[in-house]
Amino acid sequence: MNQWKNFSKGFIKENPVFVLLLGMCPTLGVTSSAINGLGMGLATTFVLLMSNIVVSLIKSQIPDKVRIPSFIVIIAAFVTVVQLVMQAYVPELYKSLGLFIPLIVVNCIVLGRAEAFASKNNLVTAAVDGLGIGLGFTFALVLLGGIRELLGSGKLFDIIIYSENYVTLLFVLAPGAFIVLGYLIAIINRIKKD
């Protein structure tokens, strides 16, 4: 398979958020700013990449019947690594992402890629796939977070773009997440059709 195609499919064509509609909880939960989206996206990308690599390496050792629990243990181990590293080096980001870091374990994207892709492909292909899907997820989160931050607090990556007097606070609150994502998916559907 063409590795570039394999890598780039995660951005639009098979974007986990906009097209496959997976991993909705962190997508909606942490995207009140672009920075949070970026942090969450990169944390998930790391877990996705590592779990894809390990699953693809030991796929022949895992008995078929217990493969899902084994995948979950592998994923949970890497999530714990991310949790401990973030707690130590970026405690503020860790705090603002809160509950959603341990919840990467139950993010359907990660388990989905392990089951549907990494357990059937070789190391390089699986790693490229993990990286591509992970960065596609990050792209979606940063886009959503950026739009919400811009409309809701007049900033982008914490840089003030326009005065706070004109912001629509609703967009950084819970309803804004649903509404912005709804319109984004509609736009992506439109782009995909052309």
Partner: peptide, 10 residues
């Protein structure tokens, strides 16, 4: 999905 999400927002 889009209209479902917007409804959920409301």
């Amino acid at each position: 999905t889009p209209i479902a999400l917007i409804t959920a927002g409301i």
